[in-house]
Amino acid sequence: MFKATIFVTLKESVLDPQGVAVKNSLHSLGLENVHEVRIGKRLEVFLDQVDRKQAEAQVQMMCEKLLANPVMENYRYELEEVS
């Protein structure tokens, strides 16, 4: 079995209003040196699959077709074998 840890983040050119709101709250905490916050998603996907190459292909496919929106998001993943 494989575990894919997938990180989906907004592209740099896309404004993240949630990140801006969190940044402002950090400023309220006195952390005036915080100049940017970007919020993304982390997904854990467990795959019944013995072949690493195939697992990788499947993870790539799910990212492109569903988990990330290529118009405004980027993704990357880590793949590890788990028992």
Binding site: V14, L15, P17, Q18, A21, N69, V71, M72
Partner: peptide, 10 residues
């Protein structure tokens, strides 16, 4: 074409 983001004022 395009995508939808959260409102800028949240």
């Amino acid at each position: 074409p395009g995508a939808m983001r959260r409102n800028d004022h949240l």
